[in-house]
Design a protein around this nucleic acid. Structure first.
Lengths: 195, 195, 195, 195
DNA sequence: AAATAATCGAGACGGTACGTCAGGTCTTAAA
DNA sequence: TTTAAGACCTGACGTACCGTCTCGATTATTT
């Protein structure tokens, strides 16, 4: 087991952490990702810049935590069909990507993550993990029901779902249509059915 | 008919234009989108900054033209099936997005485009137009063969194809797998078939 | 005798000259010397920049002509005393330096002249010439009246008169006091009297 | 009594201040006032531009401090006569204005000061203050000796002395003649004597 | 109690890029 | 050859943000 490394000196103030995250989320929603600066976040949080850099490596990491902290861990409802389950999953992505702060942050955020090897790895490892677990659970259910799924890497299916939603809403800026989740789920479900 | 607005004064030097575009493409491929600056592009092109800003509104517009000028207008080969045609189309996207300059530029570029309303509109209007025309041609062929396609907006299908490739390669940084085009085409073709 | 160099091609448009000078004088009075640019002068005059540079070497020479063209050549009135004559001469300098365009132009203009050897020489040769001629005339009258003047270079006296007025009004920005000419003339007259 | 405003944050580095001032003085002496830029000063001082703009409003204020910091506070020697005392004072002005950096800076510097209301006020308040104090001391001595001085504002006498020296040396570019101080002092002393 | 050590808010630090503007030159078609 | 127009290269402007460093002042643990 890993020992805590014996904390010495003044402990970090947890309230600073919360204030920074809140300030970052607000700023991103108000002025966008590009116009959000670490200086401005620190100023709004009533905190020194060092206090931010002591906890995060830069704007990207900070905004990521500020915008995507609320991971929905509620179990995926069982709709009884692969397509129905996928629709719920996709609707979740749509809701997540349509939130004001997320919509304002996503393109710039993912660009910054993609440009940094360390951060890039955390996209699959952290950002996509919950969605991937849900997708695997969903596949398992389908198999349990006897629905066979074609031989296709789950990461590719996930990239297709996330990439489609991200590009459609985040890059193009399309408003989330009422039928969007249904259509994406329908195509994907039929597309990956065996036979 | 629209009259040319009677050009007055010294005409723009076409060699400057070409030098700037070349310098931009090289720089992006060498140091990445973020580290590419208008000043550096101008310096490498042997041109004043004004000459750049006279023709482009900023880094985003310039890099876009530098990286995505070579529109492939060759007619889409007719493979005899929707899935086959889609595979060619998707492979074209993969090749386009995997080129060194494009791969280095895409995430930051699309983020900057998404952040500017004027540029954002040009994504559909310019960047996606050739691919969309190919897609429509491909749908027309399928109908001509009697293959019926489900009621689904072509822009959504396009966003799905482009979004998937962009996210998989550009954001996640996955290497373009040998089977990538085949798999995406297979899922999509089956997914949008009527029935 | 000097031959005219056989004018070939389109002759210069004299109206351009006048338009440029007028535009320059107006601009200097409105926005000051620093904010006056050759581009702006040309634009206001409805003239190309080249047409300006073909006639003047730059902003300094142009503004000089625009602001100090109206040389007062009226003969200096004979007041009957050195001090009285000096007072009239100094009042003339004050009036000249207090005109809106001149006041706005002088400090920057003289600075630019001082920085360029060619222009610098023209301060004595052109700008100060009329005043110097008046001063010499004034000395001649004094001698004619039997008033003896101490051995002092006339250029130094002139520099003292002009420098005092220029510094007091142009640099410090003092408003031209009612007694200013009288006081300067009194000091100078007494100061240069023999004995 | 005025409280020190409780300095917060990292204090300014005094070595930066000195390095900037030195670099500015050197540059002005080497390339002149016009060709001296804030960027070049910062680069030579090994300092960011922000560090310069944090302390000075622009080139004018910076160069002023760089060139005219060394105020000569030595007491004016008592020569026993108004004219002698004036000669010492004027010689001091000549020496000050003839120093390489000062000669290169003065015309442009005073032009920039004259163009900015805030800086303009500091000419009398700062630049001319030492000379004015000397002049007043000199008048007091004269009165103490029984030499009566005509009713004339001391600021006008000062403007005459400074203006004459500045115009003669700075604008016209005359070399400081051996007799210059003597002549100016003689004219002024006689000119302001009562009777 | 004293010493040690990490944190805090504040803001200065050296860099770098921004987008604008002026300078003075050059190139066009028309006069 | 001049004209109006305007593109050309150069280089300075003053601003903003980056991520680091330096203050004096806290706030904890260790001696």
């Amino acid at each position: 087991m890993v020992e805590a490394p014996a904390p010495r000196g003044r402990p970090r103030d947890e309230r600073s952490h919360a204030a920074i995250v809140t300030a970052a989320a607000e700023l991103v929603a108000e002025v966008g990702y590009h116009a959000t600066s670490v200086s401005a976040v620190a100023a709004r949080a009533g905190v020194g810049k060092d206090t931010v850099y002591r906890r995060w490596s830069g704007k990207a990491g900070l905004v990521y935590e500020a915008v995507f902290t609320v991971t929905d861990n509620s179990p995926l409802p069982d709709t009884g069909s692969l397509e129905g389950d996928l629709r719920v999953l996709v609707q979740g992505l749509i809701d997540e990507f349509s939130a004001p702060a997320a919509a304002a942050a996503l393109p710039g955020l993912l660009a910054d993550f993609a440009a940094d090897p360390a951060l890039r790895d955390s996209i699959r490892g952290t950002f996509l993990r919950p969605a991937r677990e849900r997708l695997l659970e969903l596949f398992a259910r389908a198999e349990g029901r006897g629905e066979t799924v074609a031989e296709v890497p789950d990461t590719l299916v996930l990239d297709a779902l996330v990439g489609t939603v991200f590009f459609h809403l985040g890059i193009i800026g399309e408003r989330p249509d009422r039928d969007l989740a249904r259509r994406i789920a329908a195509i994907t479900a039929k597309g990956i059915e065996a036979r």
